[in-house]
Design a binder for these strands. Structure first.
Length: 105
DNA sequence: GCAGTGACCGTGA
DNA sequence: CTCACGGCCACTG
């Protein structure tokens, strides 16, 4: 039986390049409407050999700074920019523009 | 089985 | 706008 982590990773794998998703959004898609923290916990254990684009996961305000303990300074931002995701002057992602709808591939 | 932990989120002051 | 607080739930020892 796969745990919730595997389920969460499956959702993250569906995020298309050039798009981002929030923890809460992924939690909903995984069937845990209030399980945003579990998603964060899963990302903290993000397996590196499994093709999981964990850099496309940001918080509800488009902030990537939460991942300081996992990504080195600026790495996550560079990876996203390389895919075409633009950051605002405040250093956050424009969510209205790049938020994944949860459907499109 | 219990208690502690955590890349969070929404609300209210 | 910022800050603090409570709730959330799988995982770990």
């Amino acid at each position: 039986m796969p745990g919730m982590f595997e389920r969460i990773y499956e959702i993250v794998r569906r995020i298309p390049p050039g798009r981002v998703a929030t923890y809460g959004q992924i939690a909903i898609l995984a069937g845990m409407p209030r399980g945003a923290r579990v998603v964060g916990y899963a990302m903290a254990s993000c397996p590196e050999g499994k093709n999981v684009p964990c850099h496309r996961v940001v918080d509800s305000r488009g902030n990537t700074k939460a991942a300081f303990n996992v990504f080195q300074r600026g790495v996550q931002r560079m990876m996203l920019e390389a895919e075409g995701v633009a950051f605002g002057a405040d250093g956050r992602v424009d969510m209205a523009r790049y938020r994944w709808d949860g459907i499109s591939k």
